[in-house]
């Protein structure tokens, strides 16, 4: 990978992060877009974790696998009841690895 490749990739990534933070960009969010953005967090993060839990194999297909399903359920319950990220991650990962070993 050449230095030029690295710089080109950097540019694409940085642009995607920075573009809309630039006030000189002539962009005024209308009421509807602003309203949709309230849901950006849960929507994007769920779009990331969903396939990890429900897609398996190569090429990836929808499938239910006990370790992912059980550990994700435990994570959701713990998160709902305790609101504690570290506790949730630690316990659900433990269950996940136990089920995989078993």
């Amino acid at each position: 990978m050449s230095l030029f490749d690295l710089l080109a990739l950097t540019l694409v990534i940085f642009a995607s992060r920075y573009l809309f933070l630039e006030p000189a960009l002539p962009l005024r969010l209308n009421r509807h877009l602003r309203g949709m953005l309230r849901y950006a967090g849960p929507a994007v993060l769920t779009a990331i974790w969903g396939p990890v839990v429900f897609i398996h194999g190569e090429p990836g297909r929808f499938a239910l696998a006990l370790p992912e399903l059980a550990a994700a359920t435990l994570a959701a319950l713990l998160a709902w009841r305790t609101h504690r990220v570290l506790l949730t991650v630690t316990l659900s990962m433990t269950l996940y690895f136990l089920l995989r070993l078993w």
Binding site: L45, T46, V53, A75, W80, S92, M93
Partner: peptide
């Protein structure tokens, strides 16, 4: 990563 994001989202 999935566990972390579940912990944040729920």
């Amino acid at each position: 990563v999935a566990a972390t994001f579940i912990a944040i989202v729920v």
